[in-house]
Design a protein around this nucleic acid. Structure first.
Lengths: 201, 201
DNA sequence: CATCAATTTGAAGAGGAATTCAAGAACTCA
DNA sequence: TGAGTTCTTGAATTCCTCTTCAAATTGATG
């Protein structure tokens, strides 16, 4: 028998297992047995903790998003220079490669968000928070006179997050030319004209 | 009994039916019976024309992409002024609203492209063709002295398509603030700094 | 009109997947 | 340690989907 665990520990395990199962089979293709297999349990055990698979999938997506966002914020907290902040943030929003699990998970939401309200809300709220994150960096840089913004900070921030999103898709789809480094350079080329700063550091 | 049709007519019907079924249930959640229902046929009839459902799904995605791309190219053909071309092309790359079937279909590919090679190839080739389309507009405008590009035309074109993609997702996910008009304005704000042209027409 | 081939149906069965549940195993706490 | 609770299993059941196929229907052709 699989090692017995406390209610909360097992739920965390299952959320992780669901995350892997979604990446492997797609948010619409994932099955109870997939999650059970990833968790090293039987279907019955999964059902004991989550009688409704959909609920588990939503929690898994939610947890994945939070983790992704928190990682970025944490990374940002270690820096003070707006230029450095902007460059690091741009890099931290891109997948490390085609297999990056965090971005793969988020990408699964793209299609589902149009069909299932919960996923639309999740994805939209992540987008808005990332926009705020960029906006804070841009506003600070502008206040310090380091950036001379080409437009309002909200629009620039929205475009920066949009570019990250899109290149995330390109990279996970294995574009033969656009990898993490190339995508970062493309976004930076926009950030340079948008901030009027060379952004070399 | 459903009206009897020729082989090629029925295949076209089925591709259309599959397209609708994918939008409704997701590329990984779509079932034979869904396609049959959309087509007004029984599962057996679908199977008679497409013994392998996956093959039909790939054809449906392929057809949807071609249609999307061809529409844009056709629209472009009616214009000559680079400024007008750029503005119209930006608008034609965005969904008309959250329910736009063409973009909904493409969005379904996002997640699947990371898991299934064929879908990755399809999505990548669409992206590259759209980039070429923009690049031609940019190069022409630059040659005529209408545009003063902020960087190489390839990078600008890649970013423009990336922005379209991303805002397509935002709109289909029902972002409360970003609709077709707002997204177009955001992309235009980038296009203005990238081309050094006001782009009002 | 009669024949023939192509298309569609509907039913049967084979294979999975979800769900339920009784029994067993492991942990907790007294 | 032992009683009680919590967690997990595995089997039975039900439901659903895919697949196959013979029969029925349709349209084309001579």
């Amino acid at each position: 028998m699989a090692q017995r665990k406390s209610r909360s520990d097992r739920r965390i395990d299952l959320i992780e297992a669901a995350r892997r199962a979604i990446i492997r089979h797609g948010i619409d293709g994932v099955q109870l047995s997939h999650v059970a297999e990833e968790a090293g349990l039987t279907s019955g055990a999964v059902l004991y903790h989550y009688p409704d698979l959909d609920e588990l999938l939503v929690e898994a997506q939610h947890a994945g998003m939070e983790r992704f966002y928190e990682q970025r914020v944490r990374r940002l907290g270690t820096l003070t220079d707006p230029v450095e902040k902007l460059v690091v943030t741009i890099r931290s929003g891109l997948p490390t490669g085609p297999l990056d699990p965090d971005v793969r998970l988020l990408n699964e939401l793209g299609g589902a968000a149009g069909r299932t309200r919960v996923y639309g809300v999740l994805l939209t709220s992540l987008y808005d928070r990332q926009v705020s994150m960029y906006q804070a960096i841009l506003d600070t840089g502008a206040a310090l006179g380091v950036f001379r913004l080409s437009g309002d900070s909200l629009s620039v921030a929205r475009n920066l997050v949009a570019l990250e999103d899109a290149y995330g898709y390109r990279i996970t789809a294995r574009h033969p030319v656009i990898g993490p480094a190339e995508a970062a350079e493309l976004i930076l080329s926009y950030a340079r004209v948008a901030t009027g700063n060379d952004l070399d550091c």
